[in-house]
Amino acid sequence: MDVFMKGLSKAKEGVVAAAEKTKQGVAEAAGKTKEGVLYVGSKTKEGVVHGVATVAEKTKEQVTNVGGAVVTGVTAVAQKTVEGAGSIAAATGFVKKDQLGKNEEGAPQEGILEDMPVDPDNEAYEMPSEEGYQDYEPEA
Results as ranks from 00 to 15, higher is better:
residue 133 Y to T: 05
residue 124 A to R: 15
residue 114 E to G: 12
residue 123 E to H: 14
residue 95 V to M: 01
residue 29 A to T: 11
residue 53 A to G: 06
residue 5 M to V: 14
residue 60 K to Q: 08
residue 43 K to M: 12
residue 96 K to R: 07
residue 44 T to V: 06
residue 76 A to D: 02
residue 98 D to M: 06
residue 107 A to D: 08
residue 15 V to I: 10
residue 73 G to V: 14
residue 84 G to N: 02
residue 99 Q to E: 03
residue 137 E to W: 05
residue 123 E to Q: 05
residue 74 V to E: 00
residue 108 P to F: 08
residue 37 V to H: 00
residue 84 G to H: 04
residue 59 T to P: 00
residue 75 T to A: 15
residue 11 A to S: 08
residue 64 T to C: 15
residue 11 A to Y: 01
residue 135 D to E: 14
residue 78 A to K: 05
residue 8 L to Q: 00
residue 59 T to W: 05
residue 4 F to T: 01
residue 81 T to N: 02
residue 77 V to R: 05
residue 110 E to V: 11
residue 47 G to N: 07
residue 37 V to F: 07
residue 23 K to H: 03
residue 96 K to D: 06
residue 16 V to A: 06
residue 44 T to P: 01
residue 132 G to W: 06
residue 63 V to C: 14
residue 39 Y to C: 07
residue 37 V to L: 15
residue 3 V to S: 07
residue 130 E to Q: 10
residue 62 Q to C: 13
residue 34 K to A: 12
residue 22 T to D: 00
residue 23 K to P: 00
residue 87 S to M: 15
residue 60 K to A: 14
residue 33 T to P: 00
residue 30 A to N: 01
residue 119 D to Q: 12
residue 90 A to Q: 15
residue 107 A to K: 10
residue 87 S to L: 12
residue 50 H to V: 03
residue 91 A to M: 12
residue 82 V to S: 07
residue 46 E to A: 11
residue 79 Q to I: 12
residue 54 T to H: 14
residue 117 P to Y: 05
residue 6 K to R: 08
residue 77 V to P: 01
residue 12 K to V: 11
residue 43 K to L: 05
residue 46 E to Y: 10
residue 86 G to D: 04
residue 104 E to S: 15
residue 138 P to V: 10
residue 68 G to P: 03
residue 38 L to S: 05
residue 26 V to N: 00
residue 22 T to A: 06
residue 83 E to D: 04
residue 133 Y to L: 15
residue 74 V to W: 11
residue 85 A to W: 12
residue 83 E to P: 10
residue 93 G to K: 14
residue 23 K to Q: 04
residue 139 E to C: 03
residue 135 D to G: 05
residue 36 G to M: 14
residue 66 V to W: 10
residue 86 G to A: 12
residue 52 V to A: 14
residue 15 V to Y: 13
residue 40 V to L: 14
residue 12 K to G: 04
residue 140 A to Y: 04
residue 136 Y to A: 08
residue 99 Q to I: 06
residue 26 V to G: 01
residue 117 P to T: 04
residue 50 H to T: 08
residue 60 K to R: 07
residue 12 K to P: 01
residue 55 V to H: 01
residue 36 G to S: 14
residue 65 N to T: 14
residue 14 G to D: 03
residue 4 F to G: 00
residue 134 Q to Y: 05
residue 12 K to C: 05
residue 114 E to N: 12
residue 112 I to Q: 04
residue 59 T to Y: 15
residue 77 V to H: 01
residue 5 M to C: 04
residue 125 Y to D: 13
residue 80 K to L: 12
residue 135 D to P: 04
residue 30 A to S: 10
residue 133 Y to E: 05
residue 131 E to W: 15
residue 78 A to W: 14
residue 136 Y to L: 07
residue 140 A to G: 09
residue 66 V to H: 03
residue 85 A to P: 05
residue 124 A to Q: 05
residue 74 V to R: 01
residue 20 E to P: 00
residue 75 T to V: 08
residue 131 E to A: 10
residue 121 D to E: 11
residue 1 M to E: 00
residue 117 P to D: 09
residue 135 D to A: 02
residue 126 E to Y: 10
residue 46 E to Q: 14
residue 137 E to Q: 10
residue 6 K to T: 07
residue 42 S to T: 03
residue 63 V to G: 03
residue 16 V to F: 15
residue 39 Y to R: 06
residue 87 S to Y: 09
residue 14 G to W: 08
residue 127 M to N: 08
residue 43 K to T: 04
residue 69 A to S: 07
residue 43 K to A: 04
residue 135 D to Y: 12
residue 138 P to A: 13
residue 3 V to Y: 03
residue 71 V to C: 05
residue 115 D to K: 15
residue 105 E to W: 01
residue 75 T to D: 02
residue 61 E to T: 07
residue 82 V to Q: 11
residue 40 V to T: 02
residue 27 A to K: 12
residue 112 I to E: 08
residue 35 E to T: 13
residue 56 A to E: 01
residue 77 V to K: 01
residue 24 Q to G: 04
residue 38 L to W: 05
residue 17 A to M: 12
residue 7 G to P: 04
residue 129 S to D: 06
residue 61 E to M: 09
residue 124 A to K: 15
residue 69 A to R: 03
residue 39 Y to Q: 06
residue 60 K to N: 01
residue 28 E to W: 05
residue 4 F to D: 00
residue 34 K to P: 00
residue 4 F to P: 00
residue 3 V to M: 07
residue 126 E to V: 11
residue 80 K to Q: 04
residue 120 P to N: 04
residue 21 K to M: 08
residue 109 Q to G: 03
residue 29 A to D: 00
residue 20 E to Y: 14
residue 59 T to N: 00
residue 13 E to G: 14
residue 123 E to S: 06
residue 11 A to C: 15
residue 72 T to D: 13
residue 137 E to R: 14
residue 110 E to S: 14
residue 12 K to Y: 11
residue 89 A to V: 12
residue 27 A to P: 00
residue 120 P to L: 06
residue 121 D to H: 14
residue 134 Q to S: 06
residue 81 T to S: 10
residue 4 F to S: 00
residue 90 A to K: 14
residue 24 Q to H: 12
residue 34 K to N: 01
residue 10 K to Q: 04
residue 34 K to R: 03
residue 33 T to L: 06
residue 120 P to T: 10
residue 97 K to N: 06
residue 139 E to N: 13
residue 9 S to C: 15
residue 27 A to T: 12
residue 48 V to A: 02
residue 130 E to A: 08
residue 130 E to G: 11
residue 101 G to N: 02
residue 139 E to H: 11
residue 131 E to F: 10
residue 131 E to D: 09
residue 108 P to Q: 10
residue 137 E to M: 06
residue 15 V to P: 00
residue 34 K to M: 02
residue 107 A to C: 09
residue 80 K to P: 02
residue 128 P to F: 09
residue 46 E to N: 15
residue 72 T to L: 04
residue 12 K to N: 01
residue 55 V to C: 09
residue 17 A to V: 10
residue 34 K to Y: 09
residue 122 N to S: 05
residue 29 A to M: 11
residue 9 S to K: 11
residue 32 K to L: 09
residue 100 L to K: 08
residue 5 M to P: 00
residue 38 L to I: 01
residue 78 A to D: 00
residue 42 S to L: 12
residue 64 T to N: 06
residue 41 G to R: 09
residue 139 E to V: 14
residue 76 A to H: 03
residue 14 G to R: 14
residue 70 V to A: 04
residue 140 A to P: 15
residue 105 E to G: 13
residue 22 T to C: 04
residue 74 V to A: 04
residue 103 N to M: 10
residue 80 K to A: 07
residue 64 T to R: 05
residue 32 K to R: 12
residue 65 N to V: 10
residue 100 L to I: 13
residue 124 A to H: 04
residue 36 G to A: 15
residue 63 V to A: 09
residue 57 E to A: 11
residue 52 V to S: 03
residue 113 L to A: 08
residue 11 A to M: 12
residue 137 E to S: 09
residue 119 D to N: 06
residue 38 L to T: 07
residue 80 K to W: 07
residue 28 E to M: 09
residue 53 A to T: 05
residue 52 V to C: 03
residue 9 S to I: 11
residue 36 G to D: 03
residue 28 E to T: 09
residue 78 A to C: 15
residue 49 V to F: 10
residue 17 A to R: 08
residue 5 M to F: 06
residue 89 A to F: 11
residue 105 E to D: 13
residue 139 E to T: 02
residue 118 V to Q: 02
residue 106 G to F: 11
residue 106 G to E: 09
residue 72 T to H: 14
residue 135 D to H: 06
residue 21 K to H: 03
residue 110 E to H: 03
residue 111 G to K: 06
residue 102 K to L: 06
residue 29 A to F: 14
residue 90 A to W: 12
residue 88 I to H: 01
residue 70 V to W: 09
residue 99 Q to C: 14
residue 83 E to V: 14
residue 34 K to G: 03
residue 122 N to L: 07
residue 2 D to G: 03
residue 115 D to C: 07
residue 27 A to F: 07
residue 36 G to I: 08
residue 81 T to K: 02
residue 98 D to A: 05
residue 130 E to M: 06
residue 98 D to S: 06
residue 61 E to A: 06
residue 126 E to N: 11
residue 103 N to Q: 10
residue 119 D to E: 06
residue 136 Y to G: 04
residue 137 E to D: 08
residue 3 V to P: 00
residue 106 G to Q: 05
residue 29 A to P: 00
residue 31 G to C: 01
residue 23 K to S: 04
residue 52 V to R: 01
residue 103 N to H: 08
residue 128 P to M: 08
residue 75 T to K: 15
residue 36 G to R: 11
residue 108 P to N: 14
residue 38 L to R: 06
residue 55 V to N: 00
residue 105 E to R: 14
residue 53 A to F: 02
residue 15 V to W: 05
residue 53 A to R: 15
residue 140 A to L: 09
residue 104 E to N: 15
residue 133 Y to Q: 09
residue 99 Q to H: 12
residue 20 E to H: 14
residue 70 V to M: 15
residue 125 Y to L: 08
residue 15 V to G: 02
residue 124 A to T: 02
residue 55 V to Q: 01
residue 49 V to C: 09
residue 113 L to E: 11
residue 120 P to Y: 06
residue 76 A to C: 13
residue 16 V to T: 11
residue 69 A to H: 12
residue 121 D to I: 11
residue 20 E to L: 14
residue 57 E to D: 13
residue 77 V to C: 10
residue 118 V to F: 08
residue 46 E to C: 09
residue 92 T to I: 06
residue 95 V to H: 12
residue 57 E to R: 12
residue 31 G to P: 01
residue 2 D to I: 01
